[in-house]
């Protein structure tokens, strides 16, 4: 774990020496604010909750998280540092987890910078703090799942654009699987409801929604963590097979 942490620290420092990190955070916050207050009808809702804030997360992350994840491995490939990293006494798992942790912590920083919105709600009304807290936890887990997927697509190709688009499409599928307009179409087509339910249960929205409502279910945790573990494991397989 010490090695993973050393790699994570290096990676994190790398984010903040380049302007990309700051640009990312600013865009993230601006979009969050725009969607929450303008598109989400925050003021019209007239209830002191952050539902109109969280509801946009699965969509915004779709654009922003692959942008963080796309350079994770393709950059190492391109610069040849992969050869350096994998000839040092670290296991591939340590390297993958270290890089993933760095990206995840970076996303956590961006997410925590949205806290002023919570304070706004706090100021405007008396919100239930429970759903806000669980919403943030869910959002963080979802970001991790997206990031692990983006890391996987980044390991598959040297090309960052391809990595970005592939990650975006996979994340889109994960969202759409449980999106009511899509599930309704499936039902209309006569898909058995068991199948539709199963597809929906694979969706990040399905698991994130209950967390927004303040429900902490162990199954949601298992869902997000198994997505992350699966993507990380596949990343290690891909990285290994690329060298064979």
């Amino acid at each position: 774990m010490r090695n993973a942490w050393i790699i994570a620290k290096r990676e994190l420092a790398g984010y903040f020496v380049s302007p990309v990190a700051y640009v990312f955070i600013v865009i993230f916050l601006v979009l969050m604010g725009f969607f929450t207050f303008m598109m989400g009808g925050f003021f019209e809702r007239n209830d002191a909750s952050l539902l109109s804030f969280f509801v946009w997360h699965p969509w915004l992350y779709m654009l922003l998280v692959p942008a963080v994840g796309m350079r994770l491995w393709s950059e190492e490939h391109r610069m040849g540092t992969l050869e350096l990293l994998f000839t040092m006494p670290v296991t591939p798992a340590q390297a993958i987890i270290g890089k993933f942790l760095a990206g995840w912590l970076f996303l956590l920083v961006a997410l925590l910078l949205t806290l002023p919105m919570v304070f706004t709600v706090q100021y405007l009304g008396e919100p239930d703090i429970g759903p806000i807290l669980t919403g943030y936890i869910g959002s963080f887990l979802m970001a991790g799942a997206y990031l692990a997927i983006s890391g996987l697509t980044s390991a598959c190709t040297r090309n960052q654009v391809i990595s970005f688009i592939t990650a975006l499409v996979v994340c889109l599928l994960l969202v759409l699987a449980g999106y009511p307009p899509v599930t309704n179409i499936l039902l209309k087509w006569g898909a058995p409801s068991a199948v539709v339910d199963f597809a929906a249960s694979l969706s990040v929205v399905f698991h994130f929604e209950s967390m927004q409502r303040g429900v902490l279910d162990i199954r949601d945790f298992i869902y997000f963590f198994s997505l992350i573990v699966f993507a990380i494991f596949t990343t290690s397989v891909v990285l290994k097979s690329k060298r064979a």
């Binding site: 290096r10 790398g14 020496v17 610069m79 540092t81 050869e83 350096l84």
Partner: peptide
Amino acid sequence: PENAPSYPDM
């Protein structure tokens, strides 16, 4: 290694 790689941003 062959092309002496290192992390350019460090």
